[in-house]
Amino acid sequence: MKKISDLFSRHSRKRILSQSFFLGAIATAGVILNAFSLSLKTEAQTPLPIVNNTEIDSYAQAVLAMEPARQNAFEEIKKLIGNGEIPKIVCNDSNSFNGLPKKAQDIAVNYCTRAQKIVADNGLSFDQFNKITLELQNNNMLKRQVYDSLLRLQQTPESR
């Protein structure tokens, strides 16, 4: 008798995992976008430059690097709050931290600081990162390019 896990091929599981990770990565990007939404409101009126492949790869690398930190911060805050609802946390809005216990506020601030560093370490300014995130919402071609880059970056060396 076959196990349930044998019913799904390794490729199928890998694809499902990649797709799930992509959605989490885009959610992370959304959090970062919210963190700097005030500065984007004025910049959104100017046309966005075309994003090149290097920027797409840098963006994907930053998103992948941020995701574990985002999940960890979320889980830590969730443990502190218990069954309570976790408020929406916006990095550049200190008022969004007010509903959190002091220790949870520290976790959120630490995550926001790390996210900024991760973006910079991957060769993008926060403005560039946020512009790409904003453009992803309306540009299916860019969304596909970022998705492909995320998949490529997650592949093990022997599967490339």
Rank of each mutant, 00 (worst) to 15 (best):
A60H: 11
T28Y: 07
Q61I: 01
A25Y: 01
C91H: 11
T42C: 10
P49M: 04
R15Y: 08
K14E: 08
G82N: 04
N34Q: 05
T113I: 02
S5Y: 13
R144H: 14
P47H: 04
F21D: 00
K102A: 04
F126R: 07
L40R: 05
N130C: 13
V90C: 05
N52L: 08
N122H: 07
E75K: 15
I89N: 05
I26K: 07
A25T: 02
C112H: 09
A27P: 02
I81T: 08
N53M: 05
V51W: 00
P157Y: 12
F21Y: 11
P101G: 10
P47D: 01
K143T: 03
Y147A: 15
F97S: 12
E158I: 13
V63A: 15
E135Y: 08
R13L: 14
G30C: 03
N72Y: 09
A35D: 11
A120T: 02
K117N: 10
P47R: 06
D6Y: 15
N95R: 15
Y111F: 15
Q19E: 03
G99W: 14
P49V: 02
P47W: 05
E85H: 13
E135M: 09
L136G: 06
S58T: 00
P101H: 14
Q137V: 00
G24K: 10
G82D: 02
E85D: 09
P47C: 01
E43S: 06
I107P: 03
M1V: 07
E85Q: 13
N34E: 09
D121V: 00
Q45L: 07
A27D: 02
A65C: 06
S5T: 12
L64D: 01
Q137M: 08
N98H: 11
K3E: 13
D57Q: 13
F129Q: 02
N34T: 02
L124G: 01
A73D: 15
L48D: 07
P49L: 03
S58W: 05
L64M: 07
P101K: 15
M66G: 11
P87M: 13
F74E: 10
V63G: 09
I81A: 13
R144V: 05
R13H: 08
V51S: 02
N72A: 10
S125A: 03
A108F: 12
V119R: 04
N53Q: 11
D6P: 01
Q154F: 14
L150W: 12
N130Y: 10
F126D: 03
E158D: 12
A104L: 08
S5H: 12
R144D: 10
V63L: 14
E43K: 08
L7D: 04
K78F: 03
E135N: 14
Q145D: 13
L80N: 14
R152G: 04
L40I: 00
S125H: 11
R160I: 09
R10N: 13
D127L: 08
F74W: 12
I132D: 04
A44N: 05
P49S: 05
I89S: 05
K79Q: 07
P49R: 08
Y147N: 14
G99T: 08
G24P: 03
N139E: 09
N95V: 04
R144Q: 14
A25Q: 03
